[in-house]
């Protein structure tokens, strides 16, 4: 990391639920010094136009992510067997968000 001190605070990832019952989606990130400032900054950046009904902020360093060099071993072996995907079911017409 560089020697220049970052004074903007910690990085937080913002997840927003656009409607009750739907899953939370990643919207972006904000800088903040603590939880209260993080949720306020996220509100001011991402939910001013009625985008959400629910919101999470998570410290970016609390998120465990795989290294991009691991892509192949994590993801590639999954597509060679048809039974891994539930493609043999017929979905009713009224079903949404699948």
């Amino acid at each position: 990391m560089s020697e220049v001190k970052d004074t903007q605070g910690q990085l937080w990832e913002v997840f927003i639920q656009t409607k009750k019952g739907l899953p939370f989606k990643h919207f972006g990130s904000v800088h903040a010094y603590d939880k209260e400032m993080a949720i306020q900054n996220a509100r001011d950046l991402y939910t001013r136009r009625g985008e959400g009904r629910g919101m999470w902020v998570v410290p970016a360093d609390a998120i465990v992510a795989i290294d991009s060099s691991d892509d192949e071993s994590f993801f590639d072996p999954s597509n060679d067997k048809v039974y891994r995907h539930p493609t043999f079911y017929e979905l009713p017409d009224g079903l949404k968000n699948m």
């Binding site: 004074t7 800088h31 306020q40 900054n41 001011d44 950046l45």
Partner: peptide, 11 residues
Amino acid sequence: PFLEEDIAQIN
């Protein structure tokens, strides 16, 4: 003082 707060104040 920083981007997020700048936007907040204008909001």
